[in-house]
């Protein structure tokens, strides 16, 4: 029995280690946190941002695995949804940038000055696609 418990703890810990390391590696590659510190000029606080990420991940994991019900007011969902979206948007933008699509694309059709409009196409497309999915597509 004790052996089974120790083995269970070991497997859980190992799984958590691997997933956590992978998550951090993913965030590091995309460079979302450095970008945020650059925008807000808060380079000194980067260790607290690390703490925020870790706390968020642990809290999310725990709440997600439990059947917790906090019974808080509905309007709290709006800031949560917004923050969720902004973070996801930054991830999506970072991925788009890593793919190097825009420099090649703008050179091909010769619109280096108007590249911002292409960017807006992608942004508006993401918003429209997301809204379409949640409001209409899920009911199909």
């Amino acid at each position: 029995m004790t052996g089974k418990i120790i083995f269970g703890i070991f497997v859980g810990l190992a799984g958590g280690f691997a997933t956590g390391a992978g998550f951090v590696a993913f965030l590091t590659v995309l460079g979302v946190i450095p970008r945020l510190t650059q925008l807000t000029k808060t380079m000194k606080m980067i260790h607290y941002y690390e703490g925020a990420i870790i706390a968020g991940v642990v809290a999310g994991t725990w709440l997600g695995l439990q059947e917790t019900e906090l019974s808080l007011p509905h309007f709290l969902l709006i800031p949560i949804g917004l923050a969720d979206g902004i973070f996801n948007g930054m991830l999506a933008a970072a991925l788009t940038e890593v793919l190097n699509v825009f420099p090649v694309l703008s050179k091909r059709i010769g619109i280096q000055e108007k590249i911002i409009y292409l960017l807006m196409a992608l942004v508006l497309g993401k918003i429209a696609g997301s809204l379409f999915q949640w409001i209409y597509f899920v009911d199909l």
């Binding site: 979302v32 970008r35 925008l39 509905h74 309007f75 969902l77 709006i78 800031p79 949560i80 949804g81 917004l82 923050a83 969720d84 979206g85 902004i86 973070f87 996801n88 948007g89 930054m90 991830l91 999506a92 933008a93 970072a94 788009t96 940038e97 960017l119 992608l122 942004v123 508006l124 993401k126 918003i127 997301s130 809204l131 949640w134 409001i135």
Partner: peptide, 17 residues
């Protein structure tokens, strides 16, 4: 209530980046 702010946040995050 989550998903509509989420959708707009998605665009804002990209613009911010």
């Amino acid at each position: 209530l989550i998903q509509i702010p989420y959708s707009f946040g998605l665009g804002m995050g990209m613009i911010l980046f």
